[in-house]
Amino acid sequence: MPIHEKNLIRPENISTHDNLVMDGVDVSGDWSTFIKTRVVADYNEELQDEIAALPGGEYIHRCWQCGSCTNSCTINAINPDFNPRYWIYLIRMGFESELVRDKDLIWQCVSCNKCTSACPRDVVPEAVMKATAHWLERKGYTKKSSSTVFDEVFSEQVIERGKIEDGEVVMSFFNRTGQKLTQPWLIEMVKRMIKGLPVQMLTMMGLATVFKPKTRNWGPARDAINDYIEEQEALLDEKLGPSVPYKAPEPAPTQIPAE
């Protein structure tokens, strides 16, 4: 009978000894494979509350682990390691280190929301995935995703002027994500716009680039939005602690240190 639980055993926890004698008995070789005891020492009992404090994570406490989210999941069908049910479990139990292990998977949610309509308890797993991805960013485990950077650029302009200016959005986004403006597709798009769009529209766009249009009487709205954001940020700081900037992992040592 195959051992179905094998996928729960991590390769780094399997140890095989070329030369091992126990109590006078030679147990060298493959057949004496050992599985190291898995020890989780650092539970974060606040983890569920931290995720719940982020927008979308509010209903995580409702989950009763039926697995509807995972087995309706678009990404899980391609990659069985993408498992929202399992992550919700880890979060609720406070297995932070186990969760962080999957930090490069969690953000891959495509927000198809099939889980949302399958969940019998309205956990809204898609939103929980989003909250978890933001939690990973905020804790400095993952780099700010391009979509987060885009959201920031976009909302900064809306908050400032009540409107966006397309050119500025594109330029700031490319700038902040370290991409060159001279992308062939972008050059081609601008060329075709100049060729194909009516002169009047091009003129308006040009003026907008220079003068940055603003919604009339925007000031009070901007102040109110900023106050709200400040309030929410303070709440998050209180629940999650201040944002931690992302630190790239140190390159793997070239030499294996002697034990």
Binding site: G67, T70, R85
Partner: peptide, 9 residues
């Protein structure tokens, strides 16, 4: 579906 106890589709 998913056999949730062994994390297996």
């Amino acid at each position: 579906g998913e056999d949730t106890l062994v994390k297996r589709p």
